[in-house]
Simulated assay, not measured.
Amino acid sequence: MNEIHKPYDQKMQKTIEVIMSDFAAVRAGRANAAVLDKITVDYYGSPTPINQVASISSPDPRTLAIQPWDSSILRAIEKAIQTSDLGINPQNDGRVIRLAFPQLTEERRRELTKQVRKYAENGKVAIRNIRRDAVETYKAMKKKAEITEDDLKEYEKEMQDLTERRCKQIDELAAKKEAELMAV
């Protein structure tokens, strides 16, 4: 790959990493601590991710146990989970919060599949925006006579190829996540 594309490729890779973390947060019927990654709890006045104030374990495939290091924030964690879009009611026994993940219904699977497709489409839009920025930069370079017309055409084609590869990668990740959702 041409050196000139490197910063744009790195931005595209970061976009894919964000999509992968979004996909991980979509629960597939199994207990997965990643579903809690986006939920924050008010801890001494600042929003803090749950995994930074508690240990999270999975005693069985359908349950997560959240044990805060400071028991005074147990209620705050419970409230944060209730107000999130997780759709699971936490059970608080005074020391540990348990989340029981129900079996996914067909309707819920379809909703989650739509959510995965939305994340994938947003990712592809972000990738295309990166391509647009790159092409604008290349055109500005051509205008300043830093590169030739032939260079411009070559860079645009290489950037288009890179964009198509990254979009294909997003499609593959989305298809894998959708298959995981429908197979549970």
Rank of each mutant, 00 (worst) to 15 (best):
I19Q: 06
V35E: 01
I170G: 05
I97P: 00
T113E: 14
G123L: 09
P59T: 04
E3P: 11
N51Y: 12
R131L: 03
I81Q: 00
A34F: 09
W69V: 02
M12K: 08
M1A: 13
K6Y: 07
Y155P: 14
M182H: 01
S46W: 00
N51L: 11
L99P: 01
M159A: 07
G94I: 03
P102Q: 00
R131I: 06
E3Q: 14
Y43P: 03
V96E: 14
N129L: 06
R131P: 01
S84T: 07
S72Q: 14
F101E: 00
V53R: 02
V41A: 01
A65P: 00
D85Q: 14
T63W: 06
A24V: 04
L74P: 10
T83F: 08
D37R: 05
K176I: 11
K11I: 14
Q103V: 15
T163I: 04
N89A: 13
K168D: 15
K6H: 13
N92Q: 01
E158V: 09
I56M: 04
V18D: 12
N89V: 14
A31D: 04
E106K: 13
G123E: 05
E172Y: 05
H5Y: 04
N32F: 04
Y138S: 09
Q13Y: 12
Q67F: 00
V135C: 06
E107S: 08
I97E: 03
A76Q: 15
M182P: 06
L181K: 07
S55H: 05
K11N: 11
A65W: 03
S58R: 13
D161A: 15
E111R: 00
E107W: 10
G123A: 06
D171P: 06
T163W: 11
A80I: 07
E149K: 10
Q10T: 12
S55Y: 12
C167D: 13
L152A: 06
D9M: 15
Y138P: 03
I147H: 03
L112C: 05
A31M: 02
L74C: 04
M1I: 13
R131N: 11
A33H: 01
E136T: 11
N122Y: 09
R109Y: 02
A179V: 11
I147D: 07
P49E: 02
K143S: 13
I56W: 07
S72V: 06
I77G: 04
S46V: 15
A31R: 00
P90Y: 00
L86P: 00
R131M: 08
N122L: 07
P47C: 01
S46Q: 13
E107M: 06
I170P: 04
D161F: 12
A100W: 03
M182G: 01
L64S: 00
Y43D: 09
E164K: 13
R108M: 08
K124I: 04
M20W: 10
T148I: 02
L152P: 08
E156W: 08
I56C: 01
E136H: 12
R132F: 14
V96H: 04
I39F: 10
Q91N: 13
Y119V: 02
P68M: 11
S72P: 10
N92D: 09
F23W: 08
E3Y: 08
M1V: 15
M141H: 10
K153M: 07
A25W: 09
